[in-house]
Amino acid sequence: MIKRLFDWLKQPLGLIAVGIVFLAVFSVAVYGLSLTQKAPDQPIQFPHNKHVGFGIQCLYCHPGASKGPNAGLPSQAKCWACHNQIARTQTSELLAPLKNAVESGTPIQWVPVAQVPDFVQFNHRAHIAAGKNCEDCHGDMTKVTVAENPQVFNMGFCLDCHVKTAGEDKVLLNKLADCGTCHY
């Protein structure tokens, strides 16, 4: 039966059919891939560029980065501390979700874009302490409006930097390239 199928596929009509199937699979795959590159919908169209542009430090809103594993998302009380003094907040349509959230006391559901898989244990503090800057991994936020994932956090990206950092120091390399440093 399989042989007959192959024979049929070898004639011109069959080749065209194979071509169509291949194109269909390929385009679906490309579409699927493109989806993975798209930033998710956020509850608020938060412009990172503006906030960074005002000179607000990353650690002001994400203070966890220097203390522990998670950088953290700011509470809406923190947003409101500045925003309730800004007249536009009351009228702007883009800011309406923030206003609603504060007034109704419901939390804002953010969708974090910089993620590592569950089997990776990442610690911000160690990286900040080692002299890394936020933009080394997260990209230049003055150019980003709604947060996008500027960098695919795969193992190559992490390990490249770990190996580079260790340089000739064999002991440090042992530590930084150890599976157990991130996976447990």
Binding site: D178, G180, H183
Partner: peptide
């Protein structure tokens, strides 16, 4: 199942 040189432990790397 690899040996951690840094911690001298037997690791189990789940993703592998």
């Amino acid at each position: 199942t690899v040996h951690s040189q840094a911690q001298q432990l037997n690791l189990q790397v789940y993703n592998r």
